[in-house]
Amino acid sequence: MTGVQRTVTRTLVVLLAMFVFAFALVPLYDAFCRVTGINGKVENTAQALIRDSIDESRVITVQFITRGSPGLPWKLEVLDRQVRVHPGAATEVHFAFTNHGKQAGWGRAVPSVSPSEASLYMRKVTCFCFQEQRLDAGERYEAPLVFQLTRDLPDDIKTVTLVYTLYPVDDKTLAAKVLANEAPAIVVPGIAVPGGEA
C-alpha cells in the first residue's frame, strides 16, 4: 500500500497548502488592491511627499464626504468640503471630530476613494485615518489631512471623491489588535503615544 500512502501524503500536503493559502489571500488581496487601486483602498501609513513640479495646466476637484455610523455618538466634519488642486501640489484640509456622547471612547475614520483608480495617485502625508482615535466626552479635536495627487494622475480623472466613515472601535477589536501585536497608536489631542510600531 505504499502507493496509497504516497498519494495520501501528497494530497494532505496540497490540502494544508490550500488552507494556508486561504489565509494568505488576505494579505495578498490587500497588497494586490494597493498595487492596482482596486476598491479605492489607500495606503494607511504616511507616505513621503514627492518633490515634483506642479502641473498647473490641470485642475482636479477633490470632494470630501464624512459619514457617521451607528453606535458612536461622534461627529466627523470636514471644514473644507471641496478643494481644487493641481496635480503635484500638496494640500492641507481640516477635519473636526466631536464626541457629543457622555463617555470617552475609541473611533476610527476609514477612508475610501472614488474612482478607485485614483487611489493609486493619492499620497497622504498626514492623516487622522492612520490610527484609532480616543476622545473624551464632549471633546472636539481638529485634525489635518495633508495629501498630494501625483502628476501621473490619468487625464480622464477630473474629480476625486474621498469618503471617510467614522466607526466605533470596541474593546474586543482593540484587544485583538493588541494580540496581533499592532496596538493602536493612542491619539489624544496634541499628544501621540504610539502603543507599538504604528
Partner: peptide
C-alpha cells in the same frame, strides 16, 4: 482538495470576526 480548505479558511475567518474581535470582513476595523 483545492477549494474545500479555502471554504474552511473563509468560515474560520468569520468565526474569528464573530467571536474574537478580528476584522477580516468588518469595514469598521479596517
Amino acid at each position: 482538495i483545492a477549494v474545500m480548505p479555502v471554504l474552511a479558511g473563509v468560515i474560520t475567518m468569520m468565526l474569528l470576526d464573530i467571536n474574537f474581535g478580528t476584522s477580516f470582513f468588518n469595514a469598521a476595523g479596517g
